[in-house]
């Protein structure tokens, strides 16, 4: 079976370490916050100027001055700090954020990522995504391996306008965990019950398959 959204988030959460500052994008990446191990302290960075984002508020905690980058009302955790957008992006661009997780439409063998322009739709903007991919060293992209029509999203070369060039090294899809190096995808793990053949079939860019591909355990 391909991974559910929750399993994708759980797989990504295994990359977390105690003391990590983490920026989670909108969608599946946001779910990663639900799977931070109990024995680990992780601080979530929200690019509108918050380090130490907490859960959504209860009804009586709602404060219009306290929102996340998705413009949702949020709370802070103990030890949080709040700052300006320039400060926020200084920590992002300066490489101070330990892990960045974001979605994408396409990635390619050179580590290029396309994530902000949907073909045929009005372009709303890149928000902070270009800064995040340019500034972070440790980025995990989460996405489905192929489109609904079966077209691979792991390509020899991105077809959509890029969000960032040569910046992605790790991808978790609903079928596999892959790394990108030397102009190739490297298959590292497969989703439970997913055959290597299926992954090969749905990966358009050059894929290196080791003799043994471990199955993810949940």
């Amino acid at each position: 079976m391909s991974l559910t959204r929750e399993q994708l988030a759980m797989r990504v959460a295994r990359e977390l370490q105690d003391g990590y500052y983490v920026n989670l994008g909108i969608g599946i990446p946001t779910l990663v916050a639900n799977y931070v191990p109990d024995d680990m302290d992780v601080m979530l960075q929200s690019e509108n100027g918050l380090l130490g984002m907490g859960p959504f508020p209860t009804d009586d905690q709602v404060d219009a001055d306290m929102i996340n980058a998705g413009k949702q009302t949020v709370t802070t955790v103990t030890g949080a700090s709040i700052f300006s957008s320039a400060e926020s992006f200084a920590m992002i661009r300066g490489g101070h954020v330990d892990l960045t997780v974001l979605g994408a439409f396409e990635v390619d063998v050179m580590g290029n990522i396309a994530s902000y322009m949907i073909p045929g739709k009005l372009i709303k903007g890149m928000g902070g995504a270009m800064d995040l991919v340019a500034g972070a060293d440790n980025i995990i992209v989460t996405m489905t391996h192929a489109s609904k029509h079966g077209d691979s999203k792991l390509l020899p070369q991105c077809t959509l306008p890029l969000t960032g060039a040569s910046c992605i090294k790790k991808v978790v899809t609903d079928l596999a965990y892959l790394e990108i190096a030397d102009g190739k995808f490297w298959l590292k793990e497969r989703a439970p019950g997913i055959s290597v053949d299926e992954i090969v079939k749905k990966t358009a860019g050059e894929l290196v398959v080791p003799e043994v591909v471990p199955e993810m355990q949940f």
Partner: peptide, 12 residues
Amino acid sequence: EKRIEQRTVRQA
């Protein structure tokens, strides 16, 4: 007025 764009809450 401080209008809220995405009022998101959890159960108490």
